[in-house]
């Protein structure tokens, strides 16, 4: 069974590209457009990994990440890879502090992103 990945980004251009990329790499993909939707999907659909944008209207990526980590009944917990256009170290530290597993800065290399995802999912490089 292929792994499930939830893409959370309010930018349609980005989420479409990610969806296409991940589907082609053989993952099962769903898209959420904001933080609230993301939490619903995570609870219901139970993805293996969440690609989470930080800057979104409403609930931002940090809050989503924190909420996910506080869901005690959610086991196993999904891997969370933060995706952000903010490149500052403060953001990275904060992302890792709220329980993210990795941190990718936009603009990113699609190959590198796939490799990181594969590593977090315990696969060898795709």
């Amino acid at each position: 069974m292929s792994h499930k990945i939830l893409v959370v980004d309010d930018e349609e251009a980005i989420s479409l590209a990610l969806e296409f990329l991940l589907k082609r790499a053989g993952y099962e993909v769903a898209v959420a457009r904001d933080g609230v939707e993301a939490l619903e999907r995570i609870a219901a659909w139970r993805p293996d990994l969440v690609l989470l944008d930080i800057m979104m209207p409403g609930k931002d990526g940090f809050e989503v990440c924190q909420s996910v980590r506080e869901m005690n009944d959610l086991t196993p917990q999904p891997k969370i890879v933060m995706l952000t256009a903010k490149g500052r170290d403060v953001e990275r530290t904060k992302g890792l502090a709220v329980g993210a597993d990795d941190y990718v800065v936009k603009p990113f290399s699609t190959d590198e992103l796939l490799q990181r995802i594969a590593r977090h999912l315990g696969q060898e490089a795709a």
Partner: peptide, 25 residues
Amino acid sequence: IASVSHELRTPLAAVRAYAELLAAD
């Protein structure tokens, strides 16, 4: 400046992602 950087990175990320997708496949 952080905002400008953020706003520049988002469309750049899209352009790069699509270019890579098109080139790879």
